[in-house]
């Protein structure tokens, strides 16, 4: 059986908020390394991979591998009943029909108990090859979100170019064009506010802004985001948590 306790409900709430517009139904795979999820969006253009490691749980017990087939819209409805600071305990049998969720406030005088019906989801698991990226950019997640939102008002797609000068996001649309260039600027005092660029080779790729804006819903998970790019391979956007991560992969656009 599975028994997993999070000190703060906000962790799972934020993860679900971050991915629910990308995927609807997905398996939460529970095993001795924690809770993992991998799912592709309907159009096969974007993939999300999530891992909440056992170290992130106040208590974690999972005797055998359990797949929890969850509709994320339904899960979000149940999670609304949890306050951010509530302790959350997830419980499931070995072949579960339902996931039990218990939310307890810090004063220990309120216990909320919910059951979420599970579904059988036949989900394909994709192997993601190890990639040496041409460029890896680490920057404040709020800044990345702002750039994506601003450019999405002008165009459907953004060109991302990483060179030794910096990383440039540019787009052209019906009303005009826009570009934002970030130069390497490590912040010694507050590393989470700095921008660092590791460049093996110049990279230039084009991506759909609709998806990037969607990924930015994970900004609440981490102050920083890591963007990894290589020519002609999917973009990797990673939000690292203290004990886990949410990663998004996005296929590039090609041709004109």
């Amino acid at each position: 059986m599975l028994e997993a306790r999070l000190e703060q409900s906000s962790v799972l709430k934020k993860v679900v908020d971050a991915i629910k517009d990308l995927v609807q139904d997905c398996n939460f795979d529970c095993n001795d390394s924690g809770i993992q999820l991998q799912a592709m969006d309907n159009s096969h253009v974007a993939l999300v991979a999530m891992h909440l490691k056992t170290e992130g749980f106040a208590l974690y017990r999972c005797d055998r591998n359990i797949a929890l087939g969850i509709n994320l819209v339904s899960l979000q409805k149940v999670l609304r009943a949890a306050q951010n600071e509530d302790v959350m305990t997830l419980k499931a049998e070995d072949s579960p029909d339902a996931l039990s969720l218990v939310f307890e406030n810090s004063e220990n005088d309120r216990i909320s108990e919910y059951d979420l019906k599970l579904m059988d989801i036949d989900q394909e698991h994709l192997g993601i090859p190890e990639t040496e990226y041409g460029a890896t950019v680490k920057m404040p997640s709020a800044e990345f979100q702002r750039i994506c939102r601003d450019l999405s008002l002008l165009s459907e797609s953004v060109a991302i170019e990483a060179t030794k000068e910096g990383i440039k996001f540019s787009c052209t649309g019906d009303i005009g064009k826009g570009a934002v260039t970030l130069r390497q600027n490590p912040n010694v005092e507050k590393p989470e506010l700095g921008t660092t660029i590791e460049l093996q080779e110049p990279v230039a790729l084009t991506f759909s802004l609709k998806y990037l804006v969607n990924f930015c819903k994970a900004s609440g998970l981490s102050n920083t985001v890591t963007i990894s790019l290589s020519n002609e391979v999917p973009l990797l956007i990673e939000y690292e948590m203290e004990h886990g991560y949410v990663r998004f992969y996005l296929a590039p656009k090609i041709g004109d």
Binding site: L47, G127, I128, P129, S157, Y249
Partner: peptide
Amino acid sequence: APFQEDLYKYFVSS
């Protein structure tokens, strides 16, 4: 508009 690639081209079923 540029053509959007499919992830199946890059990632393999495992």
